[in-house]
Amino acid sequence: MYNKTLGALEEFVLLLILVMDKEVYSVTLAEEYHSQAGKSISLPAMHTVLRQLEKKGYVESAVGGASSVRGGRSKRIYSLTTLGYQIIKEVHQERNRLWKLAPNFTG
């Protein structure tokens, strides 16, 4: 059974992974986060989040290509698992449901 509690950052990152069409790894994710959320996040922090998500089973990773910039080192590419997709979808749906019940403020 999966752990239903999902942090705001974790949720955001999952969404990013869903949305991004580039290769998803720490560097690109951190960049995307910066451009989407306006805030910056350090590499290690992003790396930690990804690891947590992987431990929870929401993402999976595979070893990806190397490049000369990386000194010939390979990178770790992340992608959503079915579970991961389900959970953000669920969260999203729950939010929507509540919003629908909220009073209609203009503006």
Binding site: Y25, S26, H47, A66, V69, R70, G71, R73, K75
Partner: peptide, 8 residues
């Protein structure tokens, strides 16, 4: 992966 990311 860590050093690679850092280098990039």
């Amino acid at each position: 992966e860590v050093i690679g990311d850092m280098l990039e």
